[in-house]
Write a protein that binds this DNA or RNA. Structure first.
Length: 434
RNA sequence: GUGAGCGUAGCUCAGCUGGUAGAGCGCCAGACUGUGGAUCUGGAUGUCGCGGGUUCAAAUCCCGUCGCUCACCCCA
């Protein structure tokens, strides 16, 4: 290494490299497939947004906006921000493009990086990735239920076990303020008996006391009034219909009256899925309804619901469970012996690659022993050997790397031979990896 | 922003109370002139994160600094 100061990735950001990215692709593919089944379309919004968008949606007083958002002034003085989440952007686009004029509901999903300047730790990065989906234009409980069903299917496809779906309703602009008052009063009566953090939360954000993790506080917290007992009739009916439909769809969940969400815009349905294989940051995904958000951003009344999956965390969980294998592999390695064999080797490689087989070959002259070693290391399913004899006969040696069997195959037939052995899929979907 | 732990070969790490660096894995070569994954033999690679101090002598002790990790806060 030259003696210049090493430039490293920015704190809290990281490079994702090949064997690992195979798993990321696999997970993203599964998500896209499941979303397509539920007829969601992909939306791609900018990573850069007016800073004000998040102040108005996420909440000007939230930690995300006050201390975690990357904001800066553009050269013309405009305040910009790297998006800390995507729901606000999706709703902004929904309004900007008049999607509400399309009638019916809009079902959109996104995959991409988000940015929050927090202290990194396991499952939490400054540039992190989210897969999310939003349904805009209806408050029907059936949509909430469908969304949750879809999530359960996705996690199942990914082989994730040990996940819990926690469900709550946080009420709306009518009943939640009332509940917060009741909660405040109850907290005042407990003054001094909760942990220091809770004392502080009781004043700043009483709802947060509910998900305090301090063991000693639990008995007291259990005695606090539950929001579910304070929902207005409309919210209660909505929540009951949702639960009924979840039952009908076979979606298992746990009522979590103490589940609260951090972003200001949430109303009614709130949920979270946790995994017991993660560390302290055990929430794989979170979401909920945000019926007033569109209006807050200057749009029409357009109720919505959505979720965001923490991809980094999802991957950690998928790795821990170890069910899903990255989808990558090498179908064929071509070993050529002697300069005269190089042109035919290149010709074969090109032909196979055009037929979508994944192919590698020696770039420099190598001993057969070495080529086979390389082929083996790369996980090639087959190795084609082209030497003097093969050139003369026009029949190549094709070796099955798993069994060691080897057969002579006419040069023009190699593609067909592979097709018969590996299958009709377009390229080797070898299940390699650990 | 707060706290704790850790920075030694490409990777995982050992190196006790100071005597100027090791293992396993990986990599390369050979045993085996055109047959891999096994075994054996040999080989290459380190500013011991960086800077300073103590000492005859520092990877080891002290101070500082940077980085990473985990946790708190909060969230995905």
């Amino acid at each position: 290494m030259p003696e210049a100061t090493k430039i490293r990735a920015v704190k809290g950001t990281r490079d994702l490299l090949p064997p690992a990215t195979g798993l990321w692709q696999r997970v993203e593919d599964e998500a896209r497939r499941v979303f397509a089944a539920y007829h969601f379309g992909e939306i791609r919004t900018p990573v850069l947004e007016p800073a004000d968008l998040f102040a108005r949606s996420v909440g000007a007083d939230t930690d995300i906006v006050t201390k975690e958002m990357y904001t800066f002034e553009d050269r013309d003085g405009e305040r910009l921000a790297l998006r800390p989440e995507a729901t606000a952007s999706v709703v902004r686009a929904y309004i900007e493009h008049g999607l509400f004029n399309q009638g019916r509901v809009n079902k959109l999903y996104y995959i991409g990086p988000m940015f929050r300047r927090e202290r990194p730790q396991k499952g939490r990065y400054r540039q992190f990735y989210q897969i999310g989906a939003e349904v805009l234009g209806s408050e029907a409980p059936s949509i909430d239920a469908e969304l949750l069903e879809m999530l359960v299917l996705l996690l199942d496809r990914l082989g994730l076990r040990g996940c819990r779906l926690l469900l709550n309703s946080v009420g709306d602009s009518h009943c939640r303020p009332e509940y917060v008052k009741v909660l405040r009063r109850a907290l005042e009566n407990m003054q001094g008996r909760l942990c220091a953090d809770c004392q502080r939360r009781a004043a700043t954000n009483p709802l947060r006391v509910l998900d305090c993790k301090v063991e000693a506080d639990q008995p007291l917290i259990a005695k606090l009034p539950s929001i579910l007992d304070h929902l207005c009739p409309e919210c209660r009916a909505h929540f009951e219909r949702l639960q009924a439909e979840l039952g009908q769809r076979g979606v298992k969940y746990e009522l979590a009256p103490r589940l609260v969400r951090g972003l200001d815009y949430y109303t009614r349905t709130a949920f979270e899925i946790t995994s017991d294989v993660l560390g302290a940051q055990n929430a794989v995904l979170g979401g909920g309804r945000y019926d007033g958000l569109s209006e807050l951003l200057g749009g029409p009344a357009a109720p919505g619901i959505g979720f965001a999956i923490g991809l980094d965390r999802l991957i950690l969980a998928v790795e821990a469970v170890g069910q899903l294998k990255p989808q990558e592999g090498l179908a064929v390695y071509i070993a050529w012996l002697g300069e005269a064999a190089l042109p035919p080797a290149i010709e074969l490689a090109t032909e196979l690659r055009r037929a979508d087989w994944s192919v590698e070959l020696d770039y420099e002259p190598a001993k057969l022993k070495k080529s086979l070693g390389t082929a083996s290391k790369l996980g090639a399913r087959f190795t084609v050997i082209i030497g003097e004899g093969e050139l003369a006969s026009g029949r190549y040696q094709v070796k099955n790397m798993a069994t060691g069997e080897q057969q002579e195959v006419p040069a023009a037939r190699v593609g067909g031979y592979l097709q018969e052995r590996i299958g009709s899929t377009f390229f080797a979907r070898a299940e390699i990896g650990r």
